[in-house]
Design a protein around this nucleic acid. Sequence first.
DNA 1: TACCAGGTAAAAA
DNA 2: TTTTTACATGGT
Length: 294
Amino acid sequence: MRKTLVQLSGPYDLALSLKAAAAFSQSRSEFEPVLRKPVKLKGTTPILEVRQESLKPAVIEISAKQTNHAEQIIELARWMVLADLDLYDFYQLVSEDPVLSPVVKQLHGLKPMRPASLFEMAVIAVTEQQISMVAAERIRSRLVERFGEKIEELWLFPSPQALSRASLEDLTDCGLSKRKSEYILGLAHQVIEGSLDLEKLKEMSDDEVRSVIGRIRGFGRWSADYILIRGLGRPDVVPVDDLGIRTFTGAYFGDGKRMSAEEVAKAFEPYAPFRGIAMFYLMVHNRLGIKEME
DNA sequence: TACCAGGTAAAAA
DNA sequence: TTTTTACATGGT
């Protein structure tokens, strides 16, 4: 496909958004302000690339070599960079806020990155239950290298088919608990037999998504909320049970001690309908260790 | 070495 | 109905 320019509504800084995402990953490859991801499209696996064409106005350039499926590439790229979210409304909401106002000024144009697929997101959620994100990432990299597909120097995340063919022992060998291995096998089987259509989640309300996710074995309230904000990019969702969120929310809104889920919910109330985006900005601000300026 | 880290289902009380 | 327990890896 040829390069396609897409103008986004509202501010967007791709390099900053990639940097923020990288701050939560252990992979220490040299940083480049380009989104590069292999994607599966009708038997082919082109590498999707997104670059920033201009900051003001926010325009991105989308391309992929060796594919005729330009429309799907563009749709997927827009999905991953959360193109439909207009940060302008969020910035207006927090412009006078004592906590968020300085944070959004330092992180202007920041948006969360969504994984290419909700299946990948669901597997991410299971791996990150209870254990540290570092340990979870190590386990996922073993899953990917065993059941995924290498495209040039990049890895395509394992398909539901590939993981459904794995044995329980294959998965525990990757470092998953027996329980979590069962969760992932169950998820993969539901997806391939069609009893679970993750794509349909995109059209559902937040509460409908919670209801559907909650019926899958291994997925509780935390996982549903985590998938809503990280996988679906729902701007008003805060996973209040999340240990990390409870910790940094206490640092920004409390006395520095970890908050309860109820306290976290209360702390983000003023930011509706952008509670999840507010949470994301604080999370990134906290992780990047940005010092207050002036 | 022990404990904690971005939970959940199942058993026990 | 509510509380307790087992679980896997990696960093400190």
